[in-house]
Design a protein around this nucleic acid. Structure first.
Length: 472
RNA sequence: GGCGCCGUAGCCAAGUGGUAAGGCCGCAGACUGCAAAUCUGCCAUUCAUCGGUUCGAUUCCGAUCGGCGCCUCCA
């Protein structure tokens, strides 16, 4: 997809459909957000200033259902809004906690608009559509006249002749001109929070918020718009209809959709008992960054089969990279002396540049993360082998570390370790084991090593007698 | 009924008209007091099946089998 021609050179505008905050995000949602984070990181690394807008949907059928059930029938509009806000605030906060856990930083978003803060813009957009003859009111609701937009259905490649109209719609629910018409503004119903509008009290339809907020914050021409494949139709198709119906020209240049995931080969669903939130994984002792790695070791446009075995493999792969980073961070004088010569010796800096080139070329080729990771792993193998025999210099290690930082800037799985100090008691145990080893008291040394392991500290003895440790 | 996707080793997975990256697991060996880490070697004559095009196909075309998605809830 690179080089990407954007509306403003050097700037990429990105709109992504965000969460509906009435529950915790599940791992499928997170796959999509991870893919968008990846896209943004690669664009940024490629030199673009990315202006990223992600909406927070805080008014919607399920939100209303869940937030209003405790309220008495006679509750006023203010109370209804307050109850809705209490629910959405809670899950919005949880959502960003989950994103942070998988290294998606909240401050990487340029705009995070809440739908409820953009009701006037939505009303204004609907009025523009009315003025263009593309919207009509019926009993306090407003509908989009799909027949008025000839290219409706192009994104989803809908064959409107062959469609089974009404196959999964309540054909008689609304009084529409056509069953394909969709609602822009929903007339008030008892028990729902409402806003005043030119058509009477009501609330926005599902699709209008993305058009209104995206146009307001990113402008009349957006470079990239992304979401899960399920949003292609109807959500994105309807966004196109709304935005282009108002603007009179193309709104989004590139649509990018991420595939779904399966869980152990089956569609994730609560009834199958294979429905997981990130919190469920953490409760099982899963490193959230291993989840991120597992997702990113597969291509975003392919169905991903999530499994706990796969998570284990991801963790093992990450450990190899993290161990390698630790090795490169160490001073070469600590390394056991190699033979000093090696017939297969390469110039580490040259080898590094090859890997770096391959890494970025893979990512520039439609975010080919599996190939980018392969470039990284072959480098790790080559340099480990060389370092065993012909220790890399401090300068070479630093160059490798710089590339590990660079690649971690995309994958976020092998960050630089902070010099986290060990507790004094752990320190004492390590010293005690050293003493036991020196006394050739192997039973005691092994006992202490097991004890430390139980505390999450893994020891690695080195040839020269030094001992290094890492957290499990 | 219409539109579309996928099928590569035990598992995950990239890839190309020119003879199969990488990761995990596993096996053997080196190193180690034992481990761990690392290294060395092994781990798909083959890319669902059958045809076709081609000097040559896993890659293009067709058919078949298998899995899946969409056609107004859904990341």
């Amino acid at each position: 997809m690179e080089p990407l021609a954007t509306q403003t050179p050097g700037v990429a505008t990105l709109y992504t459909c965000g969460p509906t905050v009435y529950n915790f995000a599940h791992i499928g949602n997170l796959r999509t957000f991870l893919f968008q984070d990846l896209l943004k990181r690669v664009l940024t690394a490629s030199g673009y200033e990315v202006r990223h807008c992600m909406n927070i949907t805080d008014v919607e059928d399920k939100i209303i259902r869940d937030s209003q059930k405790e309220l008495p029938e006679e509750a006023g509009n203010a109370a209804r809004h307050a109850a809705m806000k209490a629910l959405t605030d809670r899950y919005t906060e949880a959502f960003f906690q989950d994103l942070e856990a998988v290294a998606i930083r909240q401050d990487s978003f340029t705009f995070l608009p809440r739908a409820t803060a953009y009701i006037p813009q939505m009303i204004g957009l609907i009025q523009r559509l009315e003025a263009n003859g593309l919207a009509y009111a019926r009993e306090g609701s407003v509908y989009y006249r799909v027949a008025g937009l000839p290219h409706y259905g192009c994104l989803a490649h809908l064959d409107r002749e062959g469609m089974k109209i009404g196959a999964s719609v309540d054909a008689d629910e609304y009084d529409r001109e056509s069953l394909s018409d969709f609602v822009l503004w929903k007339a008030a119903k008892p028990g729902e929070p409402t806003w005043e509008s030119p058509w009477g009290p009501g609330r926005p339809g599902w699709h209008i918020e993305c058009s209104a907020m995206g146009m307001d914050l990113l402008g009349e021409r957006v470079d990239l718009h992304s979401g899960g494949v399920d949003l292609i139709f109807p959500h994105h198709e309807n966004e196109i209809a709304q935005s282009e119906g108002a603007l009179g020209h193309t709104w989004v240049t590139h649509w990018v959709h991420g595939e779904f995931l399966l869980v152990e080969g089956e569609k994730m669903s609560k009834s199958l008992g294979n429905f997981f939130t990130l919190r469920d994984l953490v409760d099982r002792g899963i490193d959230p960054l291993a989840f991120r790695y597992a997702i990113q070791s597969n291509h975003y446009r392919k169905l991903y089969n999530f499994s706990f075995d796969g998570l284990k493999a991801a963790r093992s792969a990450l450990d190899r990279l993290r161990t390698f980073r630790r090795r490169m961070a160490e001073d070469p004088s600590n390394a056991p002396a190699g033979e000093g010569t090696w017939k297969e010796a390469v110039d580490p800096l040259r080898r590094l540049e090859e890997a770096r080139t391959a890494f970025w070329e893979a990512l520039a080729d439609d975010l080919n993360t599996p190939e980018a990771l392969a470039a990284l792993f072959t480098l790790v193998s080559d340099l480990n082998a060389q370092d065993d025999r012909l220790p890399l210099t401090r300068e070479e290690r630093d160059a490798v570390l710089a590339f590990l930082d660079e690649s971690n800037g995309i994958f976020a799985g092998w960050p630089a370790e902070e010099g986290a100090a060990l507790d004094a008691d752990v320190e004492a145990l390590i010293e005690a084991r050293k003493a036991a080893k020196a006394a050739r008291n192997w039973a005691e040394a092994d006992r202490l090593r097991d004890q430390l392991k139980a505390m999450g500290i893994l020891l690695e003895d080195r040839k020269d007698g030094a001992v290094s440790w890492k957290r499990a």
